Simulated assay, not measured.
Amino acid sequence: MQVYKVPTDTEQHVRNQIADLLMGQMDSIGMKDAYRFLQRAINLSLDSDSTAHIFVAETDEQIVGAAFLNIGISLEKGGYYVWLNDLYVNQQYRNRGIAKKLLLKIIYWAEHNDIKGIELETGVNNAATKALYNSLGFYDVISKRYGFRF
């Protein structure tokens, strides 16, 4: 298995593989018509001036896991931080350590790119995911997240 940050010059067929994979996550949250949104977000994140990044796990030339993140600036941290928007592994490949390998790659990359921290959100009842994050040193932050959509 290979885990890597997707380069900006990635070919369209690889971008489509990432979108195909992430449709599994979109389907699970009821966004069955999200494919064009995924393609647009992937293309925007791979622009050379984007602050978004995609990491993937690939086995046998098939992308089986992906993480999508954005770089922000934090007053509290006094510098850059990562907001981990999405982490998803194909259901057939779960419980093989793929999510952990993706997170370890992101942590390593962040440490070597002057990132001061990583933040994310997960469901309060998602015990397996919370256990994974806690095992890597993530800690609970109590807050209420709000959103607004145009």
Rank of each mutant, 00 (worst) to 15 (best):
Gln92His: 15
Ile106Leu: 11
Asp20Ile: 00
Gln39Val: 01
Gln92Ser: 14
Trp109Thr: 01
Ser50Ile: 06
Tyr93Gly: 04
Lys116Trp: 11
Leu103Trp: 11
Glu61His: 14
Ile73Leu: 15
Lys77Trp: 13
Ile106Lys: 03
Gln62Asn: 13
Met23Lys: 08
Ala41Glu: 14
Ala66Thr: 01
Arg40Gln: 15
Gly97Lys: 08
Tyr108Leu: 09
Asp60Phe: 11
Arg96Glu: 13
Tyr81Leu: 05
Phe68Ser: 03
Asp86Trp: 10
Asn90Thr: 02
Asn113Phe: 05
Tyr35Gln: 01
Arg36Pro: 08
Ala99Asp: 11
Val82Cys: 09
Arg40Ile: 06
Asp27Val: 00
Ala67Gly: 05
Val56Phe: 15
Asn43Phe: 13
Met26Ser: 06
Lys32Gln: 12
Gly97Ala: 07
Val89Pro: 07
Leu22Lys: 05
Gln39Arg: 00
Gly97Phe: 12
Glu58Gln: 14
Phe37Thr: 02
Asp86Thr: 02
Ile106Ala: 03
Asp86Arg: 03
Ile115Gln: 04
Trp109Asn: 00
Ile63Cys: 07
Asn70His: 11
Ser48Gly: 02
Leu104Pro: 03
Arg96Tyr: 11
Arg40Trp: 15
Val64Ala: 08
Leu104His: 09
Val56Tyr: 15
Val82Asn: 09
Ala19Pro: 06
Leu87Met: 10
Gln62Asp: 12
Ile63Met: 10
Val64Asp: 12
Asp60His: 11
Asp114Tyr: 09
Ala34Phe: 13
Ile107Pro: 04
Asp114Phe: 10
Ile54Lys: 11
Gly24Val: 02
Glu58Ser: 07
Leu21Lys: 09
Lys105Ile: 02
Met31Thr: 01
Leu84Cys: 05
Ile63Gly: 05
Ser74Gln: 07
Asn70Arg: 08
Gly24Arg: 08
Leu102Ser: 07
Thr51Asn: 15
Glu111Val: 00
Leu103Tyr: 12
Gln25Thr: 01
Met26Gly: 03
Ile115Val: 01
Ser28Ala: 13
Asn85Arg: 07
Arg94Val: 04
Lys105Ala: 13
Asn95Phe: 12
Ile98Val: 10
Gly65Val: 03
Ile118Trp: 11
Lys77Cys: 05
Tyr81Cys: 02
Glu58Trp: 14
Glu76Tyr: 09
Gly65Ser: 04
Glu111Phe: 04
Glu111Ala: 01
Phe37Asn: 11
Tyr81Glu: 07
Met26Gln: 12
Asp27Arg: 04
Gln62Met: 13
Asp86Cys: 05
